[in-house]
Amino acid sequence: MRRYGIRKTIRSVATIGIAGAASLFAYSSAFAAFGQPGGVTDEARDMHNLYLVTLAIAAVVFLAVQGALIYIIIRYRRGKREDMPAQIHGSNIVEFIWVGIPVAIVLALFTYTVIVLNTVERGADEDDMSVHVQGFQFGWEFTYSMDNLGPERSEAGSDEEFSIVGAGLDSPELVIPVDERVEFQLQSDDVIHSFYVVDFLYKLDLVPGRDNRFAVTPRETGVYQGYCAELCGVDHALMRFTVRVVEQDEFDDWVEEMRGGGEEAVSGASDTTSAVREP
């Protein structure tokens, strides 16, 4: 009798497992995008590694606990027998162990978190290139200053600037060179926005009255999608932008081209823009 019970349990567990796997498989096309993109900056790669470790821990915890739950409800379901189970009120040893396991996990994860946090948040050096990012309802203005384009390119003392502006469906493109540390200086004068580049795995809010900035070193050329991630009003959904990471030579050429734009570029009507910022 007892063997039959165990076999029945195993069969039930197997049935549920197969059903679960089948439904996951049926889903798999939709789930092809599972997981985080790998990240295209030094910082993003560190953060992605942290994500993978966290995901692994999460998967183990999920499978262990969910598995235990499924096992328990199958194994200890009431059969035809009406006997009363032993009235166990608790166990100090068991309770200490299951407080200890989560404590150990969170201490380990916290330590790793702080290590990655220190790398990600270390900021820019004095002479690193910087881009001023102005968010507004509902678009972006990216401003480059000629005295702030990194040690190779900067013209010290120059007050020459050019900007790219875009709003709504005409989203602006921010251009930066690969393998160079770039600082983004974020500012907003109306409401809170958030500068979110998906493949940077990073976002930082533009808070009126605050000087928020962060720095990254992009390692892969390409065009990356950005969004405003903080609800900012009626057209929040349309406050998109792209970041184009280019080879350093290409960036130099682009800068010269933008400077050639002269007054037009300064006023924000470069070839990548048409929408003009509302007053």
Binding site: Q36, D46, M47, L50, Y51, T54, A58, V106, L109, T113, V116, L117, V120, S194, Y196, V198, L201, Y202, K203, L204, A229, E230
Partner: peptide, 13 residues
């Protein structure tokens, strides 16, 4: 995942 601050930078909002 959100407690891990660097992951939250990506998934927040």
């Amino acid at each position: 995942f959100s407690a891990v601050v660097p992951i939250d930078f990506a998934i927040h909002d």
